Computed example of a mutant assay.
Amino acid sequence: MVFDDPKNLRPRRSPRLPGLDYTAANVYFVTVCTHRKQCIFGLPDAPTVLGSAAAQGIREIPAHFPGVRVDKWVVMPNHIHMMLLTPHAKYNLADIIGSYKSYVSKCAHQTHPQCTVWQRSYYDRVVRDKVSYLEFWQYIDNNPAKWLLDEYHP
């Protein structure tokens, strides 16, 4: 079977929860992975130029989407995690993440025009209560320390 031919790929299932209004006020835990899990961002305490751009893009989300808040985030070598608070129906989560991915890709294309930075789509979880919020917060805090145990650590 040839996988490069789009006709031979299985239909892609949407990762979005059916029936959830992604424009409603919510708190989301979001993970975005690099293309083929390539380690292109450097370490959280020693980012590459592209890792710095990824961090800057996260810091600028509230400026591009007024009212949206990024409560906690980390840029790992091959993925990012963030907790986004969307207080009203003005913005869709997909628009926010799409804009972020576009910003980082444009930064990468300045020096490497043909590179693919991101894997398709992203992962999100709706944070439903304070306990989950604190668990995701702690997960983001602990993620850099667990990098040495990650299956994608070189």
Rank of each mutant, 00 (worst) to 15 (best):
F3P: 01
P6Q: 11
L9E: 08
P15T: 08
P15Q: 05
P15G: 04
R16D: 03
L20M: 08
D21C: 04
D21Q: 02
Y22H: 01
A24W: 04
A25P: 00
A25H: 06
Y28Q: 05
F29Q: 01
F29V: 10
F29P: 04
V30T: 14
T31G: 04
G42P: 03
G42H: 05
P44V: 11
P47E: 08
P47D: 03
T48Q: 06
V49H: 04
L50Y: 06
A55L: 05
R59Q: 07
R59W: 09
E60D: 13
I61H: 02
I61E: 06
A63T: 12
H64I: 08
W73S: 12
V74R: 00
N78C: 07
I80H: 02
H81Q: 01
H81K: 02
H81C: 06
L84P: 05
P87M: 14
H88Q: 15
A89H: 13
K90D: 07
Y91F: 15
N92E: 14
D95F: 05
D95R: 09
I96L: 07
I97S: 03
S102R: 03
S105R: 10
C107H: 15
C107W: 15
T111E: 13
H112G: 01
P113T: 06
Y122R: 01
Y122W: 12
Y122N: 01
R125K: 11
R128W: 12
V131Y: 05
S132E: 13
L134W: 11
W137S: 10
I140W: 05
D141W: 11
P144N: 07
Y152T: 13
Y152Q: 09
H153S: 08
P154Q: 02
P154M: 06
